[in-house]
């Protein structure tokens, strides 16, 4: 169904000082889909994710969000509709958890304070941190901070959520709590693109796994196919390495 298309990335290219990092990437995402982006370090996963909301401006290619092209001119409005979860959380460190989840609802979406507050409490509840509303980021564990940053993104009613290695900065014992929140979101029908090395998440939550290397998409397919029957030697080699170390 074409009208279910949320995100359409067409032939995106990006080079840094002549070094081509993205060499023509295309993929699309329908409503409710979760796609997991994997690939070796330096393959361009973060760059691709950041190109989607123009945190990094692509050199070429087109990106459409719900049919609307992402451009320099509409970028603030587009970004408000795309949630972005960073590896190192980037919570606003001078604001309480509640204000972190509230501020962009008010300053960007123009919501009234009481409506924003109510929504913030709902989202904090959803990520299991209702009791931390008054805390400051520095008072939380990494896993809690990441869950707040997910709540912060959710409170904006994003049409799609982008995750860039949301658990990579966490101690191993803290990744579970974040992965569980993400799994729950996937189940509830959130539309997401997730860069991660958490293969258990990819296996269980992904509708499709996209394997990137050297700025290209090497292969994409359902988790069943990618994990058991991937056609590309390189995909299998990468998944084996991950399986051993992860």
């Amino acid at each position: 169904m074409a009208n279910d298309l949320i995100l359409d990335v067409q032939d995106v290219r990006k080079a840094y000082d002549g070094l081509e990092v993205l060499k023509g990437i295309s993929f699309s995402l329908c409503k409710g889909e979760t796609k997991v982006l994997i690939g070796p370090s330096g393959s361009g996963k973060s760059t691709l994710l950041r190109c989607i909301n123009y945190l990094t401006v692509p050199d070429a290619g087109r990106i459409y969000l719900n049919g609307e092209e992402v451009l320099d001119t509409n970028i603030d409005a587009i970004r408000a509709r795309i949630g972005f979860v960073f590896q190192d959380f980037n919570l606003f460190s001078h604001l309480t958890v509640l204000d972190n989840v509230r501020i962009c609802q008010i300053k960007v979406n123009g919501k009234r304070k009481d409506a924003a507050t109510e929504r913030a409490h709902q989202e904090l509840e959803r990520v299991g941190l209702a009791d931390k509303a008054g805390a400051y980021p520095a008072e939380l564990s990494g896993g809690q901070q990441q869950r707040v940053s997910i709540a912060r993104a959710l409170a904006m009613d994003p049409e799609v959520l982008l995750f860039d290695e949301p658990t990579s900065a966490l101690d191993p014992e803290l990744t579970g709590e974040v992965v569980r929140v993400m799994q729950q979101l996937a189940t509830e029908g959130m539309t997401m693109v997730v860069v991660t090395h958490e293969m258990s998440f990819a296996r269980q939550a992904a509708d499709e796994i996209i394997f990137m290397e050297n700025g290209y998409i090497v292969e994409q397919g359902s988790p069943e196919i990618m994990f058991t029957d991937s056609r590309q030697e390189r995909t299998r080699a990468f998944l084996n390495v991950i399986a051993e170390h992860g």
């Binding site: 945190l55 980037n90 001078h94 979406n109 904006m156």
Partner: peptide, 29 residues
């Protein structure tokens, strides 16, 4: 940290609004 501006912009804040609401209060401290 640069991530503060990045997170603010990623959520759709204009540069001015991000400076005023996110960067300035931290810089003041």
């Amino acid at each position: 940290p640069a991530g503060q501006m990045m997170a603010a912009r990623a959520m759709g804040m204009s540069k001015m609004s991000a400076i005023r609401n996110i960067i300035f209060p931290q810089a003041a401290r």
